[in-house]
Amino acid sequence: MSAPTTAPGKTGHQDARKKKKFELSRRGRKLTLAVHVVTSVGWVGLSLSMAVLALMGYTTDDAAVAKGVYYAMYVFDDTSVTVFSVTASISGILLSCGTAWGLLLHWWIIAKWVITLFMTIFAWFVIHPIVMKATENTAEAGGAPPRPGWPADFLVWSVPALFVLLTAAAVISVYKPWGRTARGRRATARPRRT
C-alpha cells in the first residue's frame, strides 16, 4: 500500500497549491541574503554620504566646492543610489516570498517595505530633480559665490531625514518588532503539511 499524498483532512488540490509556493533553496537564500545585506548597507552608506554633501553644499561660500559637491551628489544619485535601492528592494522581496518569513506575515517586514517604497519613490521623483537643479544653479555661478538657492535648503534637511529612515529600516530588520499580522497568525494556526 502506498503512502497518502496529502495530509489528513487536506484535499489533493490544496496540497498541490502548497507545493507551487515559491521557495528559495538553501544556497539561493544565502546568496539573496548576502546581496540584500550588502546593497542595503551600501544604500545606508550612500545616504550618509549624500547627507554630508548636502550639508557641505549648504554651508560653503566657495563656488568650486559647491559645484563639486552638487555634481558629486548628482553622480551618486544617478548611478549608485539607483542601483543599490533597486537591488535591495528586489532582493528583499525575494527573501520575503522565498522563505518562511513571508511577504505579509510580519509587521516588521511591512514596515520595512513601506520605508523602502517611500524612499525609492521620494529619492527618484523628488530628490533627483532637486539635485539636478542645484547642480545647474552652481554650474551657472562660474567663479562667483555659489547660488544653489532653494534646492540647497530642501536637500539639507530632506537627505539627512532619508538617512534616518534607512537606518530605522536596518534596526527594524535586526529587532523584528511588533509580531505577526492577522494573516501571519492565521497562517501559523493552519495545520502543517506532513
Rank of each mutant, 00 (worst) to 15 (best):
6 T>E: 05
6 T>P: 01
6 T>I: 10
7 A>F: 09
7 A>N: 11
9 G>D: 05
10 K>F: 12
10 K>I: 06
12 G>F: 06
13 H>R: 14
14 Q>E: 15
16 A>Q: 14
18 K>H: 14
18 K>E: 12
21 K>V: 13
21 K>E: 13
24 L>H: 08
24 L>G: 04
24 L>A: 10
26 R>Q: 10
27 R>D: 14
28 G>E: 04
30 K>V: 09
30 K>H: 12
31 L>N: 03
34 A>T: 13
36 H>P: 01
37 V>C: 07
37 V>L: 11
38 V>E: 03
41 V>H: 01
42 G>Y: 04
43 W>N: 08
43 W>G: 07
43 W>I: 09
44 V>C: 04
44 V>H: 04
45 G>E: 08
45 G>W: 07
45 G>K: 04
46 L>K: 00
47 S>G: 15
47 S>R: 03
49 S>C: 10
50 M>V: 05
50 M>C: 05
52 V>H: 02
53 L>K: 02
54 A>N: 01
56 M>P: 01
57 G>P: 00
58 Y>T: 06
58 Y>A: 12
60 T>L: 02
61 D>W: 03
62 D>Y: 10
62 D>E: 14
63 A>Q: 05
64 A>T: 15
65 V>I: 15
65 V>Q: 11
65 V>N: 06
66 A>E: 02
69 V>Q: 00
70 Y>S: 01
71 Y>I: 03
73 M>P: 00
76 F>S: 04
76 F>R: 08
76 F>N: 09
77 D>I: 00
77 D>H: 13
78 D>L: 14
80 S>D: 09
82 T>H: 10
86 V>W: 11
87 T>N: 07
87 T>H: 07
88 A>C: 10
91 S>H: 03
92 G>N: 05
92 G>S: 08
93 I>K: 06
94 L>A: 08
94 L>E: 03
94 L>G: 02
96 S>L: 09
96 S>N: 12
96 S>C: 10
97 C>T: 13
100 A>L: 06
101 W>R: 09
101 W>Y: 13
